[in-house]
Amino acid sequence: MRRTARLLTGTALTVATAALATAPAHGGAPRPAARPYGAPTGSLEVYPATAIPGGQVTVNTAACGEKGGATGDAGAVGAGVFTLAPTTHQGEAIGQFQVPPSAQPGTYEIVAKCAEGSRQVTGDLVVALSAAHDQVQPRGSVKTGVGGALGPDPVQTAAGVAALAVAAAGGTWLLHRRARGDGI
């Protein structure tokens, strides 16, 4: 019985700890981990990731080193060759190109080749007929008759997890007393 009580307590505390660790404290999306200054990465960042024909796109990479430039190739989407110039912002090389008005919807690979060495990095650009922010996003809840969730509020989530942890600890304490023969 004690083994079961300890197992239940450990499981409840593990669940509570995991839920608290994953709930964002600021109410938004989690922030990506910081990259050390000048550390090369193996990707080409494309912003915006989804563009419309005729839109401006910015690409950057730190793969070419702190003072390395690159030559970009957006020929897959029809934009041709462009230059990525080194900047002082975390050793990144940044460049821009315009998506041709004749570009068709789809996903296109954008390539950058470092000026020094033979390193090459790639990133994806999605071309859409309309900008993603113009699309209407669904809101509200689904009427299933089963009930609803609390929502994305991290304070409510943390309070719920804390209540579950307290209930699990109390139940474990009662099971422990019962196993010792102290009664309830």
Rank of each mutant, 00 (worst) to 15 (best):
T157R: 00
V136Y: 04
P152W: 08
P138M: 03
V126E: 08
V146H: 10
Y108G: 05
A131H: 09
A103I: 02
S130R: 06
L129H: 05
F97Q: 02
D153N: 14
A128Q: 09
G117Q: 13
I110M: 13
Q96P: 01
V121F: 01
A128E: 04
P105A: 07
G140I: 13
S141N: 08
T122C: 09
V136F: 01
F97T: 00
G145N: 11
K143T: 03
V146G: 03
Q96M: 12
F97E: 03
I110L: 11
Q96F: 07
G117L: 11
S118Q: 14
R139D: 11
V136R: 13
Q96T: 15
K113S: 15
A158L: 11
H133I: 15
L129W: 10
A115S: 15
K113W: 07
A159M: 08
P154F: 00
P100E: 12
E109I: 12
S102Y: 09
Y108L: 03
F97C: 03
A128H: 01
L150V: 10
A158F: 00
G160H: 05
G147T: 07
V155D: 07
Q137P: 02
E109G: 01
L125K: 05
D153H: 03
V127N: 07
S102Q: 14
T107F: 02
V155K: 02
L125Q: 01
A132H: 08
A103L: 13
T122D: 04
T157A: 00
K143W: 08
P152S: 11
P105V: 07
V155Q: 00
G123L: 09
V111H: 09
T122V: 05
D124E: 12
A112H: 12
R119L: 14
V126P: 00
V121L: 12
V99Y: 00
Q156W: 04
T122I: 06
T144N: 09
A159P: 05
D124W: 02
V127K: 02
A115D: 15
T144H: 10
G145I: 01
T157I: 00
H133T: 08
D134C: 01
T107Y: 05
P138T: 04
G148A: 12
A103W: 06
H133Q: 14
A149W: 08
